[in-house]
Simulated scan of single mutants.
Amino acid sequence: MSPPVPSSNRQAGRTIIAQNRKARHDYTVLDTYEAGLVLTGTEVKSLRLGRASLVDGFATIDSGEVFLRNVHIPEYEQGSWTNHEPRRVRKLLLHRGEIERLVGKTKESGLTLVPLALYFTEGKVKVELALAKGKRTYDKRQDLARRDADREVARALGRRNKGSD
């Protein structure tokens, strides 16, 4: 029997293993896809312990197949000679039509495939893959300024509503 999962990690039947928060800061997400992963047994056991890192991860399309690269899944401590390599290339499972669409979009306009989250759905490991465009530094500054302005407006409204009670 598996250990209970904290309720804060659950979202609509998803148990989140790892998230790439920096991706939304560095890229403008245009579209998202859900893909399965081809994993070994020790990788799944390591993921069940909630250990993974998507920080430097990206996906490539080679000869009609999509591969996830640079995603770190640490070795399973109880594993023996069957243990996996932590940063090995992993195949992603997508429908043929989705792969063809991704090939067209990444070739024509210089878009990138970035993993946003790694999670369990009904016992299977899935990755949320984003079709994204890299942000320039001034875009990042504009986003931060907009977020700060929104936060200030919310604070001012909160103070105004509190004072009028």
Rank of each mutant, 00 (worst) to 15 (best):
R51H: 15
R24W: 03
A52G: 10
D56S: 14
R10T: 08
Y27Q: 05
S53W: 08
Q11D: 10
Q11A: 00
K22F: 10
S53C: 07
A52F: 07
A23G: 05
L68T: 11
L49Q: 15
K45H: 12
Q11L: 12
R24M: 00
L47D: 07
G50Y: 13
A35D: 02
A35F: 07
L49H: 15
S46C: 04
E43Q: 13
G13V: 05
L68F: 13
G57T: 06
G57Q: 02
P6Y: 01
A35W: 03
E34Q: 13
E34N: 12
Q19E: 14
A12K: 06
V38E: 12
R48Y: 07
T40N: 06
D26C: 07
T32I: 11
A52H: 09
V55T: 05
N9E: 10
G36H: 00
Y27L: 06
D26G: 05
R48L: 12
D56G: 14
T40R: 07
L37W: 05
R14S: 04
V38I: 12
I17V: 15
G13E: 06
A59V: 12
T42W: 01
G64F: 15
S7H: 02
T28F: 05
T42L: 02
N9P: 00
I16P: 11
S46E: 01
V29E: 08
S53V: 02
Y33H: 01
D62K: 15
G57W: 04
R24A: 03
V55D: 09
K45L: 14
L49K: 15
H25G: 05
L49W: 12
T28K: 01
S8Y: 15
T60Q: 12
A23P: 04
F67Q: 06
R21C: 03
L54N: 03
Q11T: 13
S63I: 14
D26I: 00
I61S: 11
Y27W: 03
D31E: 14
A23N: 02
S63E: 15
V55H: 00
K45G: 12
G57M: 05
G36T: 00
A35E: 01
L30W: 09
V5Q: 11
D31R: 14
L39R: 00
K22G: 10
L39Q: 01
G13K: 09
L30S: 03
A18C: 11
A23H: 01
R10V: 06
A35T: 08
F67M: 03
L37M: 14
A18Y: 07
L39E: 04
D26V: 03
Y27S: 00
P6C: 00
R48I: 10
A52P: 06
Y33W: 00
Y33I: 04
R21N: 10
E65W: 09
Q19F: 10
G64C: 15
G57K: 05
R21V: 00
I17R: 06
V29K: 01
G41N: 12
V29Q: 02
Q11K: 09
V66L: 09
R10F: 08
L54C: 04
S7V: 14
L37G: 07
G50C: 14
A18P: 10
A23T: 04
R14F: 00
G64W: 15
A52C: 13
D62W: 11
R14V: 05
A18L: 09
G13L: 01
R48F: 02
V38T: 11
T40L: 10
L47E: 06
G50H: 13
